[in-house]
Design a binder for these strands. Structure first.
Length: 874
RNA sequence: GGGUCCAUAGCUCAGUUGGUUAGAGCGCUACCUUGACAUGGUAGAGGUCACAGGUUCGAGCCCUGUUGGACCCACCA
C-alpha cells in the first residue's frame, strides 16, 4: 500500500485523475440499454474565459450527472459553446482596433469573419480546458457549437418553417438601435436605467403670430429637428386656442400641426408634447394614429442626417448642445430644469440606444408563447425554485414581437433571398438558384444575421440532431434538467420552450433549475471594475477544484445569492483534507482488510451504520430536490462529526484499535467506502484518488462508476444507535464539566451515572469505551437513591439521568451553590409548564404528543426539585 | 407605475407542513505539539429572530401594517 502524504495536494492529483476518466471513457453516454438522464450544458460564450458563474453551473450540473450516473442511468451531459453574436463580434473588433487600428470594414466581411473564427478557436480551447479543470464529466464526443454545421442546418430549417407559417415576418417598426454596435436590438437587450438629465422648455411660435407660442418641455431637444407635430390634451384649457392651428418648428422654420391626444399628461412639464415619430416609441404610436409623417433624423451611428439641415453631421450629444445654444440665441429658449429619466442602453456596450424606425425581421412570439405557457401551467415543465414561475408567466403573457435580425457579420445569415427582377422574397434552407416566381437568377441574400438567442433557443433540438430524427434525439429529448441562471430565463429558457413546443410538439426539458447569482462576500455583484472578481482558476490552483465545488454546492441555496468568501472556501478545503486524513488513518490500520466483517455485537458499529443510512436517505432526497446546499451540509456533518469526531475517536482508544485490527473488523473501511461514493458527485477528484487506495472496492475500479449508496449496507440498528447516542450525551456532559472547571486532559476524574436499571443496562456494553472517552479513572453505574451521598460532586443532567463528576484534588468550585441555583431554575421552569398545562383547552387543542411531552417534563421537574430540596436542605 | 424576494449570533447564512432549551460555518475567548489531520482537538462566550399589531394553548414560521434593503418588468415627454 502506497503511503499517503499527511496533506491532500490537489495539484498532484486532479489532472491525472481527469485523464484516467477520459481514458476509461466513463463520460460517454453509450450505455444505451440503461435509462437515460440528460443535461445540456448552457453553452458558454466564446468571448474569453469562464468566470465563477460558469463554475457554479458546471459544478451543479456535474453533481447531478455524476449522481445519476452512479445511480445507474445512461447519463449524458452534453457540452458546447455559443457563438454569442454581438458579444464576440465586439471583442474581436476591439482587439482588431487596439492591435491594428483597423475596423471590421477595413478588413471586409470575409476576412473579418476569418479573424472571428480564429478567436473562437482560441477561446474555445481555453474554455474546454477550464471545464476539465472543474472536473466536469461531460461527453466530449458530443461537443457542439451554436454555429457549427448541424446547428446551422437546424437554424435554417427553423427559420424557413416559421417563415412559411407566417410566424416570421419582415416589418418596418420602431426598434431599439445601438449606434455603437450599429444594429437593431431586441427589447431584452436594452437595459433601462435612471440617468440625470434636464428638461428643456422650448418655444414653438404660432404660425402668423410670432408673439404667441406653445412652450414644449423635452428631455431631447436635438430631436426637434425631426418633429412633425406638437400634441396637447384635448381638455387642457390653456391650449384651447391652439387647437387645429399650426406652429413653426424652431430653427427649422418647418410648419407643423398642433394635434389633440389624450395620451398627453396635462400635469407633466408644460402639458405640451413635441412629437418625433421617428425617434420615440410613444411619438411613433401617436404619429401613426394621426397619420403624421415619420422623419428619420439619425444615421446608423446616431449622427444627424440631411433631415437636420445645417446640423447635419453632428452627433446626438453635440447636436443637443448646439441646438440649445441656437435656441437661446433665437430667443426661443424658455428655461431648463433638472430632471432624471429612464434611459435605455445597449446591454453589451452600455451605449444609449436610439429608438428608430427600421425594417427588421420579427417572430410572432405571442403565437409561440401559448403552448409554452400551458406547459408550465400543466407542470409538464417544473420550474425550481417555484417562485420563478410567476416571473415566467408574467413575461410570457405580455410577450411582444421578437426582433431577430441583427446588422452584424458574426452569426447565422438570414436564409432569405430577394429577387432582383420581381422583388419576390423567398426563404429556403439551401441557397436558391432562381426566383420561385419569375425564374430570374439575380438573387441577393439578406445581409443580416440572426439574434444569437435564435440559435441558442434551438439548443435542445440542434444538439441532438434535429431536424433529423436521430437516435440521440429519440433517446435524449426531452432532457431532464435545464440548469441555468435566472438572468437568462427570458433570453433563453423561454425561447427554448417556445421553439421546442412548436417544432417537437413536446417540452424540451422536464425541470428548469435556476441557480442563484454568485456575488462577493459583501453581496456585491462581481465586476472587473470593482476588482472583486473571484477567478475560479485561481481558487482551483490554490485550494483545489474540490474545495471550490464543495463551496459552490454548500452555498447554492434556493432564492438567495451565493456569497463567496475566501474563508468559506478555506473551510471546505479543510473538509477535503479531513476526509483525506480520515482515509489515511483507516488505511494505516485496516489497509490489509480484504473481507467484509462487521461485528454487530459492537454497538459503535451498529450506530455508525445507522447514521450512514440516514445520511444516504437524506442526501438522495436532497439532491432529488436540487438542495445542493443541504446535501453538502449533510455530508459534511456525517463525515466530520459522526465519522471522524466520534466513530474514529471511539475506535482509536488503546486496546480497541488493536482488537479491531486483530479481528479484521471492516466497519471503518466499509463506511469510508460508502462515504467516498456519497461524496463523489460533489468532490470527485479527492474521492477518486482515495478510492484507488482502498483495499475493498466491492464493485468498481472507479468510484465515478461505482453505485451510489441508496440502500442500507446491512440494516438499521436503532438499539445500537440509542445506546451510542446516550453514550455521546454522557461524554459531552462530562467534557463540559471538565471544561468548565479547567480540568486538564491528562487529569482523570471519577464519573458516576445515576439511572434506573433500564438505562443502566444500556451502558453496560459501553463501560470501557465511556470511561476512555470521558477520561475517567473510574466509571460507575449507580442507583438514583445513592446520589445523595455524592451531593458535593459536580453534577450534569442528561435526559432522565444524573451524572456526578468527582474532580481531582484542587480543582473545581462550589457544588452546593450550583445545586441551589439549579433548584431556583427548576422551580421557575416548573411554574411555566404547570401554567401551560393548566390553561384551558390546551389538552384539547394541542397534539397529544406535545401534551405528553409537557406532562413528562413536568414530572421530571418535580422529581428533580425534590432531589435538589433534599441535597440543599431548602 | 406593476411584480417578486429579503431582514435570525460580530460576519455570511440554514431553520421543510406553527410544537422541548432557535442551528451551522467563519470569526472571537481559554486550554491542548494526544501516535489520521494545527487545513487539527476540547470547552466556552455571543440572539428582544427589523418594528407594531393580530390569529393560536403555543409564532422565527401564519395574517395586517410600518421601516429598511435587493431584484425583475414597464415607451411617460
Amino acid at each position: 500500500m502506497k503511503e499517503l502524504p499527511p496533506q491532500y495536494l490537489p495539484q498532484d492529483v486532479e489532472k491525472r485523475i481527469y485523464e484516467q476518466w477520459m481514458t476509461a471513457k466513463i463520460f460517454e453516454a453509450s450505455e444505451t440499454h440503461k435509462k437515460s438522464y440528460t443535461i445540456l450544458m448552457p453553452p458558454p460564450n466564446v468571448t474569453g474565459v469562464l468566470h465563477i458563474g460558469h463554475a457554479l453551473t458546471c459544478t451543479l450540473e456535474d453533481v447531478l450527472t455524476r449522481w445519476k450516473r452512479m445511480l445507474g442511468f445512461n447519463a449524458l451531459w452534453l457540452p458546447g459553446t455559443d457563438h454569442a453574436g454581438i458579444a464576440t463580434q465586439m471583442v474581436v473588433e476591439r482587439k482588431l482596433f487596439s492591435e491594428e487600428k483597423k475596423s471590421r470594414h477595413d478588413l471586409g466581411r470575409e476576412e473579418f469573419l476569418k479573424r472571428v473564427w480564429q478567436w473562437k478557436e482560441e477561446s474555445q480551447t481555453t474554455i474546454h480546458s477550464q471545464i476539465k479543470m472543474l472536473g466536469s464529466s461531460v461527453d466530449w464526443t458530443r461537443l457542439r457549437f451554436t454555429l457549427d454545421d448541424q446547428a446551422s442546418r437546424a437554424v435554417r430549417e427553423c427559420f424557413v418553417r416559421l417563415f412559411h407559417e407566417n410566424l416570421i415576418y419582415r416589418d418596418e417598426a420602431m426598434i431599439s438601435w445601438c449606434p455603437r454596435c450599429r444594429t437593431a436590438l431586441s427589447d431584452l437587450e436594452v437595459k433601462f436605467g435612471e440617468r440625470k438629465g434636464k428638461l428643456w422648455h422650448i418655444r414653438y411660435a404660432l404660425k402668423g403670430d410670432a408673439k404667441k407660442f406653445l412652450v414644449v418641455a423635452t428631455t431631447r431637444p436635438e430631436t426637434l429637428l425631426g418633429d412633425t407635430a406638437v400634441a396637447v390634451h384635448p381638455d387642457d384649457k390653456r391650449y384651447k386656442e391652439f387647437h387645429g392651428k399650426t406652429v413653426v418648428l424652431p430653427l427649422m422654420g418647418r410648419e407643423i400641426p398642433v394635434i389633440c391626444d389624450e395620451y398627453v399628461d396635462k400635469e407633466f412639464g408644460t402639458g405640451a408634447l413635441k412629437i418625433t415619430p421617428g425617434h420615440d416609441p410613444n411619438d411613433y404610436a401617436i404619429g401613426k394614429k394621426h397619420k403624421l409623417p415619420i422623419l428619420t433624423l439619425f444615421d446608423d451611428g446616431a449622427r444627424i442626417n440631411e433631415v437636420g439641415g445645417i446640423y447635419k453631421g453632428l452627433s446626438r450629444e453635440k447636436g443637443r448642445d448646439t441646438i440649445v445654444e441656437d435656441l437661446k440665441k433665437a430667443g426661443l429658449f424658455e428655461k431648463e430644469q433638472d430632471h432624471s429619466s429612464n434611459v435605455g442602453a445597449c446591454d453589451r456596450c452600455q451605449t444609449v440606444v436610439e429608438p428608430r424606425v427600421s425594417r427588421q425581421w420579427f417572430v410572432k412570439a405571442e403565437v409561440l408563447a401559448a403552448p409554452a405557457i400551458k406547459a408550465v401551467e400543466d407542470k409538464r415543465i417544473r420550474i425550481v425554485p417555484e417562485e420563478w414561475e410567476k416571473t415566467y408567466f408574467n413575461w410570457m403573457r405580455n410577450i411582444r414581437p421578437w426582433c431577430i435580425s441583427r446588422q452584424l457579420w458574426w452569426g447565422h445569415r438570414i436564409p432569405v433571398w430577394y429577387c432582383g427582377s420581381c422583388s419576390h422574397v423567398m426563404s429556403a434552407t439551401e441557397t436558391p438558384k432562381a426566383c420561385d416566381k419569375c425564374r430570374g437568377t439575380a438573387l441577393t441574400q439578406d445581409e443580416d444575421v440572426l439574434d444569437t438567442w435564435f440559435s441558442s433557443g434551438l439548443w435542445p433540438l440542434s444538439t441532438l440532431g434535429w431536424p433529423d430524427e436521430t437516435e440521440d434525439l429519440k433517446r435524449f429529448y426531452p432532457s431532464d434538467v435545464m440548469e441555468t441562471g435566472f438572468d437568462i430565463l427570458f433570453f433563453w429558457v423561454a425561447r427554448m420552450v417556445m421553439l421546442g413546443m412548436h417544432f417537437k410538439k413536446e417540452i424540451p426539458f422536464h425541470t428548469v433549475y435556476l441557480h442563484p447569482m454568485v456575488r462577493d462576500e459583501f453581496g456585491q455583484k462581481m465586476s472587473k471594475t470593482k476588482g472583486n472578481v473571484k477567478d475560479p482558476l485561481e481558487i482551483i490552483h490554490t485550494k483545489g477544484a474540490d474545495a471550490l465545488r464543495f463551496t459552490l454546492c454548500a452555498m447554492a441555496v434556493h432564492g438567495r445569492d451565493v456569497l463567496l468568501s475566501d474563508a468559506r472556501i478555506e473551510g471546505y478545503r479543510n473538509f477535503v483534507n479531513k476526509l483525506w486524513n480520515a482515509t489515511r488513518f483507516v488505511i494505516m490500520h485496516f489497509g490489509d482488510v480484504t473481507r467484509s466483517n462487521v461485528r454487530l455485537t459492537d454497538p459503535v458499529n451498529g450506530w455508525i451504520l445507522t447514521r450512514l443510512n440516514e445520511t444516504k436517505r437524506e442526501m438522495n432526497a436532497q439532491l432529488e430536490q436540487f438542495r445542493f446546499d443541504e446535501a453538502a451540509t449533510t455530508l459534511y456533518h456525517f463525515v466530520w462529526n459522526d465519522y471522524c469526531d466520534y466513530f474514529i475517536e471511539f475506535i482509536k482508544r488503546k486496546g480497541e484499535i488493536d482488537s479491531r485490527k486483530g479481528l479484521k473488523d471492516s466497519t471503518a473501511l466499509e463506511v469510508l467506502e460508502e462515504i467516498l461514493r456519497l461524496a463523489h458527485p460533489i468532490i470527485p477528484f479527492v474521492t477518486e484518488e482515495l478510492w484507488s487506495h482502498l483495499p475493498l472496492k466491492s464493485d468498481a475500479k472507479c468510484v465515478a462508476v461505482a453505485q451510489y449508496p441508496v440502500k442500507p449496507l446491512i440494516g438499521d440498528f436503532p438499539e445500537a444507535q440509542a445506546q451510542v447516542g446516550k453514550m455521546i450525551e454522557v461524554m459531552n456532559a462530562v467534557r463540559r464539566v471538565r471544561g468548565e472547571n479547567n480540568v486538564a486532559n491528562n487529569q482523570t476524574v471519577e464519573v458516576r451515572v445515576f439511572a434506573e436499571e433500564k438505562v443502566k443496562a444500556v451502558f453496560r456494553p459501553l463501560m470501557d469505551c465511556l470511561a476512555d472517552v470521558t477520561g475517567a479513572s473510574r466509571l460507575t453505574l449507580l442507583d438514583p437513591s445513592e446520589e445523595l451521598a455524592f451531593a458535593n460532586e459536580k453534577l450534569a443532567v442528561v435526559g432522565s439521568m444524573n451524572i456526578r463528576v468527582a474532580l481531582p484534588q484542587g480543582v473545581g468550585g462550589d457544588a452546593a451553590g450550583d445545586a441551589l441555583r439549579e433548584l431556583q431554575e427548576a422551580r421557575a421552569a416548573l411554574k411555566k409548564v404547570t401554567e401551560l398545562l393548566g390553561r384551558a383547552g390546551f389538552a384539547d387543542k394541542a397534539p397529544a404528543a406535545v401534551v405528553l411531552k409537557e406532562r413528562e417534563k413536568e414530572q421530571m421537574l418535580r422529581v428533580r426539585i425534590e432531589q435538589l430540596e433534599k441535597t440543599t436542605g431548602k
